[in-house]
């Protein structure tokens, strides 16, 4: 099991590298090689590291461990076909982790990054609405049952297309350089991760790799259905290409606009959920 976990982490980092490369090519830059994020993680792990004097040491270190821990948990829930609600719970808790990263150092940049991550809590609500819609169709929230449903009835991507769009938006909001990545905007240096350097940042990179892998795999499992490993990897690469285009072609929004758009999406999703509940599946 540990081997799968490590492979997933490295593949997730590779996906992030592909993401960067495509964004660079769209913007007519050569861009870094696609394995840059893996090198990045290794580079940070070889840096001299200490804990800032102003930080709260236990939280400063503990939050890195928690970040890797929760996404490890999400990975195993994915592998065992467990409840999608738990994975979404972990997704929401990532917000708390970002918050912890930002606040624990005492740096104002980190603090504003952390506060922005709390403000962008609006992005999770469409997620729950889309999960509710899926539950209405499949009568279960277990990943294995959702995949079985799709084997019989065809992919949910077609049946519940707006729900897929909402979840795509949610994944987009967690992608670096995206329109909603206000938590690591450049006016805040690096946002919540400004003060986590050296091995702490390397740990964060591990978490990011695992997070990318899990989120993309969950999207494919929920909206496409069961896939064999090669097709899963191909699907994830395709998804990251689409995400890269979305990130490269949209400017980063101001925090206010970002929240407004997420609230609008939430409202649309609520209307869609009401239609599904009342008309399609009364």
């Amino acid at each position: 099991m540990i081997a799968e976990l490590i492979l997933a982490t490295f593949f997730g980092l590779l996906l992030l590298g592909i993401h960067r490369k495509i964004i660079a090519r769209i913007q007519r830059r050569p861009g870094p090689p696609i394995w840059q994020e893996i090198l990045h993680m290794l580079k940070f792990s070889f840096k001299t590291t200490w804990i800032p004097k102003t930080a709260t040491p236990v939280l400063f270190v503990g939050v890195v461990l928690i970040a890797i821990g929760i996404w490890t948990a999400a990975f195993y829930i994915l592998v065992s076909g467990g409840s999608i609600l738990v994975i979404l719970g972990i997704y929401m808790l990532h917000k708390i982790v970002e918050h912890g990263f930002g606040l624990s150092s005492g740096s104002p940049y980190g603090k504003y990054g952390g506060v922005r991550s709390v403000i962008s809590a609006a992005s999770e609500i469409p997620l729950f609405v889309s999960v509710a819609v899926i539950a209405v169709y499949t009568h279960s929230l277990d990943l294995s049952a959702i995949m079985q449903y799709q084997q019989v009835h065809g992919p949910l991507l077609i049946i519940a297309f707006p729900a897929a769009c909402a979840m795509f938006l949610v994944i987009l909001s967690k992608m670096p350089f995206g329109p909603f990545s206000i938590v690591e905007a450049k006016e805040l240096v690096s946002g919540y991760k400004t003060e986590h350097f050296g091995i702490w940042r390397a740990g964060l990179e591990i978490c990011n790799g695992l997070k990318t892998f899990v989120l993309l795999a969950v999207f494919l499992a929920v909206f496409i259905g069961p896939l064999s490993l090669p097709w899963l990897l191909v699907g994830m690469i395709l998804l990251i290409v689409i995400l890269a285009f979305a990130c490269a072609l949209t400017p980063m929004m101001s925090p206010f606009d970002s929240v407004t758009i997420q609230m609008l999406v939430t409202a649309l999703m609520l209307v869609y959920a009401a239609i599904v509940l009342l008309v399609v599946h009364p």
Partner: peptide
């Protein structure tokens, strides 16, 4: 969340989540 004391303030957002 402007308040100092990260471990305590974090409980505010964690509990509601």
């Amino acid at each position: 969340f402007r308040a100092p004391g990260a471990p305590y303030v974090i409980m505010c957002s964690l509990s509601s989540l």
